[in-house]
Design a protein around this nucleic acid. Structure first.
Length: 429
RNA sequence: GUGAUUGUAGCUCAGUUGGUUAGAGCGCCAGGUUGUGGCCCUGGAGGUCGGGGGUUCGAGUCCCCUCAUUCACCCCA
């Protein structure tokens, strides 16, 4: 057992896996461009109050999952970001971005940190890609965000995902409902579990998504938020459904979908993957028109957004066999030195090839030809170029096609020409 | 934070009721083939049995502690 190991809940990503990340990231970038979203990068840490204010002091994330520390004894506490929306909103407000154009569409691909016990599909450092649509308050905006997210999943080839949506109404709807819910729950107070009692005062809505079996009976009989909604909120939700229906995006309505973060209003949504085990949310999001005000903005900044868990996407794709054809690219040419004394010459030839834009490998360790050939094979090089005494004297190099095993002897210029013309497939393995 | 689970070679795992020098497959390295890979054959390297303590004539096997892993609860991506 090595003395040093990765920090609990973090992991290393090696080259054979990184190709998968590049693939997914490429799809995200491509579709972001297609939908008109530009990338934003914000710092990995923010002042702690930002998260307390935006995510909500009563949430689990703020209550027990943040990595917070003091940069210096007199400094303000700072926190490794547990989610992206707060930081993006802070950046947008700080720069007064909405003054340059009324609508901004941003996407990101970032690392987040949450101090949870790791388990399948859950890490302490993890990555999300997501988007924020700022400046538009409408069902059309949430619908676009959902569409964007679902198209990413679809483009990646992921199957069997389930989209659930709900509406939380606006703040006055929720205030009204909070009272209705409290009135209903009061007679059951003695039967509520500890977590639910804590939420009773501050955020009774979140009692509804408790998974405690003992609570289910009580929850099942609760009045629905839906029945407390204003007609505007109902119409808003109907409109979102209309957009999803017209784009043939399948979904279920889940009246109990509340989501953990306090800043959501109106539409909230979540996508689950059948491949994930207990932590099965692969993406989620919603609308949060009130967040900017909460952060002290004088003007309104209505917003919608989604976030998807990169690792969970990767797990799902792996289980569905969507990476079968993916492997790290091999070099075009492997320069094989007949004996160690010819390494200098081999390196010189390699540099020449590289200067011609041809990816080239040389065995710097000076191993046997057999080892070099095995290496070339393993790396799935297309060609082997042999450097022996004959070649050095004659200037004619033996070039072997490692797929067909054809071999010719040519000047270096002719070899470069041949390689550049070659467009055949890489060796199978 | 709570519960359970598993730690033996680089990887996946065997290891009988405690009993000599702890094994296999794959991978790695070398040779067979001194200018040519994949396949095959032969050989080799590589292990404080997670760590510490205890019981015992004797511990990879039993007990205690500890660290780590994984899964689940909670919650979320």
């Amino acid at each position: 057992m090595p003395q040093y190991q990765v920090v609990k809940g973090a992991r290393d990503i090696f080259p054979d896996e990184i190709v998968r990340w590049h693939y997914v990231e490429g799809v995200v970038h491509r579709l972001a461009l297609l939908y008109g979203y530009s990338e934003i990068r914000t710092p990995v840490f923010e002042y702690t109050e930002l998260f307390q204010r935006s995510i909500g002091a009563t949430t689990d994330i703020v209550g027990k999952e943040m990595f917070s520390f003091l940069p210096d004894p007199q400094g303000r506490s700072i926190t490794l970001r547990p989610e992206m929306t707060a930081g993006v909103m802070r950046a947008v407000l700080q720069k007064n971005l909405l003054s340059t154009a009324p609508v901004h569409k941003l996407f990101y691909l970032s690392e987040l940190f949450r101090k949870e016990r790791p388990q399948a599909g859950r890490q302490r450092q993890f990555s999300q890609f997501g988007a924020e649509l700022l400046g538009v308050s409408s069902p059309a905006a949430v619908a676009e965000v959902i569409t964007f997210m679902m198209q990413v999943f679809e483009t990646l080839g992921i199957r069997g995902l389930k989209l659930r949506i709900n509406t939380l109404g606006d703040s006055s709807d929720r205030a009204r409902y909070r009272e209705v819910l409290r009135d209903y729950l009061t007679p059951f107070y003695d039967r509520l579990d500890l977590a639910s009692r804590e939420r009773f005062e501050k955020n009774p809505l979140r009692i509804l998504d408790s998974k405690n079996p003992d609570m289910q009976e009580i929850i099942a009989g609760a009045p629905r938020l839906h029945d407390s909604l204003s007609s505007e909120a109902v119409a808003d939700f109907e409109k979102v459904r209309f957009y999803l229906d017209s784009r043939r995006i399948a979904y279920d309505i889940d009246y109990r979908l509340v989501r953990g973060l306090d800043y959501y209003c109106h539409t909230a949504f979540e996508v689950t993957s059948p491949e994930l085990g207990a932590q099965d949310a692969i993406g989620g999001g919603g609308r949060y028109d009130g967040l900017a005000k909460e952060l002290g903005s004088s003007g309104e900044v209505p917003a919608s957004g989604f976030a998807a868990g990169m690792e969970r996407v990767l797990i799902t794709m792996e289980k569905q066999g969507l990476f079968a054809a993916l492997s790290p690219p091999g070099p075009k040419v492997y320069v094989v030195a007949q004996q160690q004394g010819l390494l200098d010459h081999a390196m010189q030839v390699a540099y020449r090839l590289r200067s011609e834009g041809i990816s080239t490998e040389v065995d710097l360790a000076g191993r046997s030809m057999k080892a070099q050939m095995r290496d070339a094979n393993r790396m799935r090089a297309c060609f082997a170029l042999f450097i022996g005494e004959d070649e050095v004297v004659s200037g004619a190099y033996a070039l072997k096609n490692l797929v067909t095993a054809d071999q010719t002897s040519q000047s270096l210029d002719a070899v470069i020409e041949l390689i550049n013309q070659y467009s055949g497939k890489e060796p199978e393995s």
